[in-house]
Amino acid sequence: MSCEDLASKAGVSITTISNINSEKNLPIIHLLLQIAEALNVDIREMFVPTKETSVSQMEIEEAKELLVMSLKILEGKK
């Protein structure tokens, strides 16, 4: 959803959303409720992550490399 769409759905200006997004302003609870409703999320989701953190492809590749290196070290000790 674009900032413009969110502003429209929440009934506020795009400047208000932009200022919140850039951390220039902190929204009052009433505005947070409007934004949560516009996003169709529980307001708690705006403060506490409710979904698992995703792992980047780079992190997966680094983990694979470490695993391969560890296996080679273990094979060398046999």
Rank of each mutant, 00 (worst) to 15 (best):
V12R: 01
N40C: 10
A38F: 00
H30Q: 14
G11H: 12
E65N: 11
N21H: 08
K64Y: 05
L67G: 13
A36Y: 08
S22L: 07
A63W: 01
A38H: 07
E59K: 12
S70F: 02
E75S: 10
E52I: 03
L6C: 10
E52P: 10
A10C: 06
I29C: 02
A38Y: 02
L31Y: 01
T50H: 13
E65P: 03
P49S: 13
I43V: 15
G76L: 01
K9N: 14
V41C: 14
V41A: 08
C3A: 12
G11C: 10
M46Y: 12
K72H: 09
M1V: 15
L71I: 10
V12M: 06
Q57V: 05
S70D: 04
I35F: 06
I17K: 05
T16Y: 00
S56E: 12
L67N: 10
Q34E: 14
F47Q: 06
N40T: 07
M1S: 09
A63V: 05
T16L: 03
F47H: 11
P49N: 05
A7L: 03
P27V: 03
M69G: 02
K24T: 02
V55T: 14
V12E: 04
S22G: 01
S56L: 13
E65Y: 08
A10K: 00
L32Q: 04
I29P: 08
H30T: 13
E4C: 03
N21C: 09
V68W: 02
I29E: 06
S2W: 01
I29G: 12
I35G: 05
I28P: 01
N21V: 15
Q57K: 14
D42I: 08
L39G: 07
S54D: 04
I28G: 07
V55Y: 07
E61C: 00
D42R: 13
A63C: 08
C3S: 10
A38D: 13
E75Q: 12
M69W: 00
S13K: 00
R44C: 04
L67T: 13
H30M: 05
E61M: 02
A7D: 04
L6G: 07
M1P: 14
S13R: 02
E62N: 05
M58S: 12
E4F: 04
S56W: 04
K77E: 12
I28W: 03
A7P: 10
E65K: 15
T53G: 07
S70T: 13
T16M: 06
E45L: 02
A36D: 04
E61P: 01
I20V: 15
T53A: 12
V55P: 09
A38I: 02
N19C: 01
K77G: 04
E52Q: 12
E59V: 01
L31D: 01
F47K: 06
T50G: 12
T15S: 11
L66R: 10
I60T: 06
L39Q: 08
V55C: 13
I17E: 04
T15N: 14
K9Q: 15
A36W: 03
L32D: 01
K9F: 09
S18N: 11
V68Q: 05
P49G: 08
E62G: 00
K77P: 03
K77M: 13
I60E: 00
E65T: 12
I28K: 15
E4S: 14
S54P: 00
Q34R: 09
T16N: 00
F47S: 08
L6A: 08
K24A: 03
I35N: 03
M69Y: 02
M58C: 08
C3E: 10
I43W: 10
G11W: 11
